[in-house]
């Protein structure tokens, strides 16, 4: 059995963090969930980690380094270039979506306000990227 890759959650809001973690746990995912609470921290985690996470759940609105900038740096980094990044954000702004994809996001997911929808969305995300998706070698 291959070692389970971690999930990197980049989220500055502790409430959202708690709700996201709760949703991810709902599926009994065993993957380690690393939480970075701002953009810089996210980049630091990536630099230090031995095995890259299976997915980065990246919020856009982050202290220090904003989400899109984090994404840009990830894509600019040779090792992280193909790392799956899902933008998980409250924003439905078209231009955020467009720019997110433009910078190479693998997916763009709006956090639903409705708890059920939110839980479903996040748990499916976790399941998909941690289990179903075959990561790049």
């Amino acid at each position: 059995m291959t070692q389970l890759k971690s999930i990197l959650l980049v989220e500055d809001n502790p409430d959202d963090e708690a709700l996201t973690l709760r949703a991810l746990r709902r599926n009994n995912l065993k993957n380690e969930i690393i939480v970075a609470r701002n953009g810089q921290e996210a980049l630091d985690v990536l630099s230090e980690i031995a095995v890259l996470p299976c997915v980065v759940l990246l919020d856009l609105k982050l202290p220090k380094i904003p989400g899109l900038e984090v994404l840009r740096r990830i894509r600019a980094h040779e090792r992280w270039r193909v790392l799956p990044v899902v933008l998980l954000t409250s924003s439905k702004e078209e231009r955020d979506i467009a720019e997110g994809y433009g910078l190479g996001a693998n997916s763009y997911v709006c956090k639903p306000v409705d708890f059920q929808q939110f839980t479903t969305a996040v748990s499916q995300l976790g399941l998909y990227w941690a289990v179903i998706n075959e990561p790049a070698p």
Binding site: D15, K61, S91, K111, P112
Partner: peptide, 13 residues
């Protein structure tokens, strides 16, 4: 868009 929704989500969640 970001900041008003987050607390709502928290309340609901």
């Amino acid at each position: 868009s970001h900041d008003l929704r987050a607390p709502l989500r928290a309340i609901e969640g």
